[in-house]
Computed example of a mutant assay.
Amino acid sequence: MTGKVQAAGLFGWIVVVFIAAAIGAAASVQAAAFYGQLAQPAWAPPATVFGPVWTVLYACMGVAAWRVWRHGGFAAQRRALWVFLLQLALNALWSWLFFGWHQGALALLDIVLLWMLIVVTIVLFWRTSPVAGALLLPYLAWVSFAAALNYAVWQLNPQELG
């Protein structure tokens, strides 16, 4: 691949990832206010932590997908990239379930499925590019933390999170 094709690919994967982020963010417009009114465990971070953390994680996700895509394009990496796109969709859906529709149990189910697909994505990415797989490890760690937080907040707020 030429340098221009590689740069366009990187730009494309970053755009795809941040489109998913924007879809999730659309459900999170009132997230800080909603999150702030919920009973939370003592270990819950302030709402202001989530935006910067997710920005870094999404950037890493885009670079990871690009690094895999560079090895023969979508045709050669179809399975790994489709799993990546599926987990990205579940990622965006979580914000709608939790913040948009206030469905704590469904959000927890979504995040458990998301966690499993992230693990599969890491394995598939690692086979092609260990760096790409490693770029997703902080994402897995954060989603693990977010799953525990989702459960705790849902348990503490059964009326607000159905």
Score class of each variant (00 low, 15 high):
32 A>S: 15
66 W>T: 03
151 Y>P: 03
67 R>Y: 08
25 A>K: 09
26 A>Y: 14
14 I>W: 10
32 A>H: 05
84 F>T: 01
114 L>A: 03
60 C>I: 10
111 I>V: 11
162 G>V: 12
80 A>Y: 08
16 V>M: 11
5 V>N: 15
143 V>K: 00
41 P>L: 07
92 A>N: 06
17 V>R: 00
78 R>F: 15
148 A>D: 12
1 M>I: 10
79 R>N: 15
68 V>R: 02
22 A>E: 08
2 T>V: 09
8 A>E: 13
118 I>V: 14
22 A>W: 10
52 P>F: 06
42 A>T: 12
122 I>G: 09
21 A>E: 07
16 V>G: 04
115 W>T: 07
103 Q>E: 14
31 A>E: 09
95 S>W: 00
110 D>A: 08
119 V>G: 14
51 G>N: 06
157 N>S: 05
128 T>Q: 14
31 A>C: 04
2 T>C: 09
150 N>P: 00
42 A>M: 13
95 S>H: 01
22 A>T: 10
158 P>D: 11
12 G>S: 10
40 Q>W: 13
13 W>T: 09
56 V>Y: 07
150 N>R: 05
9 G>S: 14
31 A>N: 04
33 A>G: 06
66 W>M: 07
115 W>R: 02
43 W>N: 10
97 L>H: 01
91 N>D: 11
54 W>K: 00
157 N>T: 04
123 V>H: 14
46 P>A: 14
53 V>Y: 04
125 F>I: 06
127 R>G: 13
95 S>Q: 00
83 V>F: 09
97 L>V: 06
29 V>N: 15
76 A>M: 06
28 S>P: 03
5 V>P: 04
117 L>D: 05
41 P>D: 10
91 N>S: 12
63 V>M: 10
158 P>R: 05
115 W>F: 11
51 G>C: 07
71 H>P: 04
124 L>R: 03
36 G>L: 11
22 A>F: 10
58 Y>T: 02
91 N>W: 00
133 G>A: 11
103 Q>K: 12
108 L>Y: 11
74 F>Q: 07
40 Q>H: 14
56 V>N: 08
66 W>A: 12
160 E>P: 05
37 Q>P: 04
19 I>G: 06
17 V>S: 13
112 V>K: 07
100 G>T: 05
90 L>P: 05
59 A>Q: 05
68 V>F: 08
82 W>E: 14
1 M>N: 13
71 H>C: 14
121 T>P: 01
111 I>R: 01
21 A>W: 01
104 G>D: 04
55 T>P: 04
41 P>A: 03
110 D>Y: 01
90 L>Y: 02
124 L>D: 06
7 A>C: 10
8 A>W: 10
67 R>S: 12
55 T>Q: 06
80 A>F: 02
7 A>Y: 05
67 R>Q: 15
12 G>D: 08
152 A>I: 08
147 A>Q: 07
104 G>Y: 02
156 L>Y: 08
154 W>G: 02
68 V>K: 01
159 Q>M: 15
42 A>V: 14
63 V>N: 02
8 A>Q: 09
89 A>L: 14
70 R>H: 10
5 V>M: 15
29 V>P: 03
7 A>T: 13
36 G>V: 05
11 F>I: 15
50 F>R: 02
17 V>Y: 03
124 L>H: 03
98 F>C: 00
160 E>T: 09
152 A>Q: 14
82 W>H: 14
15 V>T: 11
58 Y>P: 00
101 W>D: 10
97 L>E: 05
118 I>G: 00
48 T>M: 14
84 F>G: 01
137 L>F: 12
